[in-house]
Design a protein around this nucleic acid. Sequence first.
RNA 1: GCGCGGUUAGCUCAGAUGGUUAGAGCGCAGCAUUGACAUUGCUGAGGUCACAGGUUCGAUUCCUGUAUCGCGCACCA
Length: 736
Amino acid sequence: MENTPSSIPEKLLKPYNPTEEESVIYKKWEESGYFTPENMIKDGLTKPDAEPFTIVLPPPNVTGVLHMGHAMMITVEDILIRYKRMRGFRTLWLPGTDHAAIATQSKVEKEIQKKEGKSRFDLGRDELLSRVNAFAQDSHDTIVNQMKVMGASCDWTREAFTLDEVRTKAVRTVFKKMYDDGLIYRGHKIVNWDPKGQTTISDDEIVYEPRKATMYTFKYSKDFPIAISTTRPETKVGDVAVAVHPDDARYAEFVGKTYTVEDFCGVPLTIKVIADQAVEKDFGTGALGVTPAHSITDWEIADRHDLPRPQVINEYAKMTVGDDRLLGKKVLDARETIVTWLKEQGLVENEEVLEQNVGTAERTGGIIEPLPKLQWFIDVNKQFTLQHSDINTIPSGSQTTLKEIMRATVGTGQIDIIPDYFTKTYFHWIDNLRDWCISRQIWYGHRIPVWYKGDEIYTGIEAPDGDEWKQDEDTLDTWFSSGMWTFSTLGWPEQTEDFKIYHPTSVLETGYDILFPWVARMILMTGYNLGTIPFKQVYLHGLVRDPQGRKMSKSLGNAMDPLDIAAKYGTDAGRIALVVGTTPGTDSKISEDKIKGYKLFANKLWNVSRFVLTNYSPEAAAASYTASDEGVLNAWHTEIAAITSAIDTFKLHVAAESIYHFIWDTFANGILEDSKPLLANEDAAIKLSRQKLLLTLLSESVTVLHPFMPFVTEAIWDVLPIDNKNLLMVQAWPTN
RNA sequence: GCGCGGUUAGCUCAGAUGGUUAGAGCGCAGCAUUGACAUUGCUGAGGUCACAGGUUCGAUUCCUGUAUCGCGCACCA
């Protein structure tokens, strides 16, 4: 084994140094142009008629830096993409970023408030937008850099942004179409108002937090016949009715009667007693004070009983009625005032502390105040005609609803969710889905493409002629634009080649936490606009947690930066550590120890390469295998088949572990050790056969490992004595 | 309240459409080695597969129930 070390590249004589290799390798990949599928075809690496495989990157929010959750997403997608590319598919991974409307604006607002003590209203619309745009650009650059460090093999020539020109056109086109179909309407309805962010938010943007609250049981006045219970006495100045259950004998005699309360802490009330199914007999007194303007349930009750809906709280969560005891007071102060007044009047019958869920806005933390407002909505239950449809149970030209589209695509298996138990959760969500409020009172985002002139309303792609037209001040929910991401990124509404070739996409890979806000919305938008599905398979990864199982966050100080991991252990180690031992849909814990283990693995493979190359001689290329070497090779090929099928069925953890096990235990500890005497054998046939075998096993191992650990494998491939080789990234997947 | 998921080695987790001795990584114990190896290799200890019923020739795996942890949705007067 005193072979010529001179034929061995210098770097292979030292331990593997990821930082030295990685950036150089990424540059090579990028310069090859092979992230772009058309270049693969041009160079004969992909057949022109190859089946497309498309993933559109879930666009990271331009709110800062990528975290380990993103790292998981990028790793899984890059594994699938690299694998499919090597399998000969016309493979496109289309990157982009999301303007993320509220998330980004509120982040910038917070910073400005902190540094300059100014609100967005102090700055004005234009100034705020220029600040947000600058921040977003910065954030974007950071994110792109991080993705490159992670080895993402996406086609940067096609990069998209949810707020750029092409996407704006898509948004306006869709808005107009839905408006014309009557699916988008403007209505005065009760919405979730965030007093802190000064905007409406959708049901999906509410985070419920358990808090202690005091529930007071009292009567409106001495002579009122029924006691009610509430945790929000301040809203009671907006009551118009008391609702009881229709079967409740206790109150049957009062139903239908109307009572006048002359003075409820300075406010006169007219209360009608009604019977409604929504009331629970056993909760509290079994009687519910109905406040239509400030409770979603009560709003619905008011619908059924045709009740008035006086608003008593404004957008700043302050009281708008009463005398100086209440008027202009914040809700919490008003609550105290009313409780004190109730006690003075001797009206309180009971007080009880209980835990209740308080709705807060996920981005600002503000307590949600339900308020009636004039807003834009998408009607999810309205019938419309779907002109063209590829959706299984909805024929072209038939009547359907958005809810039905969401159900049909998944229910018939046209879209496959992995893991499949999320299918049930998905249907459950659809069942509870209400009309989607899409207007936001923030400035960063797609401005609603509606113009007003007196009583006239205009909707279109461009502003109508004439200075008198004024555009709606509001912007669209960010999910409205990300809902059309699979086709807006491909150039729709133009009928581009890209759109024709790559849509519907193949796999949508994302965290299960955005199944509802995003995945469902994409299905809705695509079904409505194109009559088809946005993707065939949905792969939901779990959340990445710290070793104690906690969510990673800056405030806990347990967040890991993918860049730090790359610098310390190499990108490859971080990538495979995120995959091994994790299953789709299940949260996983990541520790530095785990990542460190895979750094050792990269080094192990490096050392295997050194051994193989040191013992290789060029004559081996033409050698034929001995029977036993043939057997070893066949066993490995059987294993490759198993690994291949594991990847095909999204069992990436199984595939990764099998390769790891093969390389370390079977190859390094077994075959390599057995080779030592064979390589010293007198018989050249035996010796050369074994040399050839080792090189073949090594080259095929790095090929199969490549999607998981792209850098170290490419670095090794680069020094293998193989004729006419291209980049490993475009090497054909071994199939036997 | 409705629904979903977990409970497997000290720790973190895989896995089996029901069938010999249930796996990995880390950790632990013992031995070996300076080599292709920032060491690594070999050997080993360690498990009533949460609990209770049921189906079955056979259940950790399937079914029912219980406990417990986590999550989602709804309610939240």
